[in-house]
Design a protein around this nucleic acid. Structure first.
Lengths: 163, 163
DNA sequence: CTAGAATGGTTCGAAAATCTGACTACTGTC
DNA sequence: GACAGTAGTCAGATTTTCGAACCATTCTAG
């Protein structure tokens, strides 16, 4: 296993300031948590046969709503440009995860919606999310997890430029 | 301003399941928060004259410790391969942000350390981090912010493969 | 109702980021 | 001192991302 973004085999040598032993800032902590969930979901997807699909694609796919989502909205929520989103949706469409349907209320727009393969993948992803959240709940405790979720949601009010 | 990862101008149309109106999972919430901090720091860096330096570079730079950090450690913490980290450090070095010094205790290794420009940038970044955290604290309240930090730190215990 | 501004999306081309594979140099072990 | 493992780099290819330019449709002000 010579490559792959290394999954920390090394012993934690306690550094200091910037990054290291000290308390990390909330942004950095969120990075760690977010990345962990992402990795888990992606790994389970791959294991379930959805082994095409990259992180970048998944980040867009994860934001497709049940009734379909506009490309612009996908771009905003995934924090990429429309061009990037277009490119990702192209790939996802070619791979059978999503379809582009005309938006009934706006002829300029098209709704990105789940195709069969996308629905199947979403199911796997959801299951993993549940499993992981349960692990986290086991570690933190029920009430603490609820509190964490609530605090993050509250923080979202001022950190999410979209909504 | 025709491009740039769009900063949510649109009205939040309440979607449903997957991504949308419903409560987001903790991973996704963390993404939003993390990304917000990152954007703020990067914007302030650019405003302060550190306008070369990309997100990817910053993610590596942010993990350089005061006493220097090995490339492998940088890679693990930033969750990229050693090759990618090498590439980033190359650029950061060329731009004067870091230096590579021989590791006194291991001749194979080299310590990535802050150069003058890197120290200056770090100062700006830190200041922004403080400002942003204060904003967050104003929004959440002192105790809640402390609690959030504590919960995330606790969650890190099981989500951070490195340490 | 229509001209002009704004919005949703795409195409093109280039730059940036990331990965796999293969390799060198040094460490540590037995 | 051979050998397995670790630190880092080089080379090449692929993927991701962005900026600019553009078309079609919608919205808005007169």
């Amino acid at each position: 296993m010579p490559n792959r973004p290394d999954q920390g085999t090394s012993a934690a040598d306690s550094e200091d300031t910037s990054a290291g032993g000290g308390p990390l800032n909330i942004g950095l902590l969120c990075f760690i948590v977010q990345r962990s969930m992402e990795d888990r979901v992606l790994a389970d997807l791959a294991a379930a046969g959805f082994d095409d699909i990259t992180v970048a694609q998944a980040r867009v796919l994860a934001r497709v709503g049940a009734k379909g989502t506009r490309l612009t909205d996908l771009a905003e929520q995934a924090r990429v440009t429309k061009q990037t989103a277009t490119f990702m949706v192209d790939q996802l469409e070619r791979a059978g995860y999503v379809s582009r349907l005309p938006d009934p209320v706006d002829a300029r727009a098209r709704l990105v919606t789940f195709a069969d393969r996308g629905l199947a993948a979403r199911e796997v992803a959801r299951r993993t999310e549940v499993v992981v959240q349960e692990e986290w709940t086991r570690h933190l405790g029920r009430r603490a997890t609820v509190r964490l979720h609530q605090l993050l949601t509250q923080l979202r009010e001022i950190t999410d430029p979209y909504q």
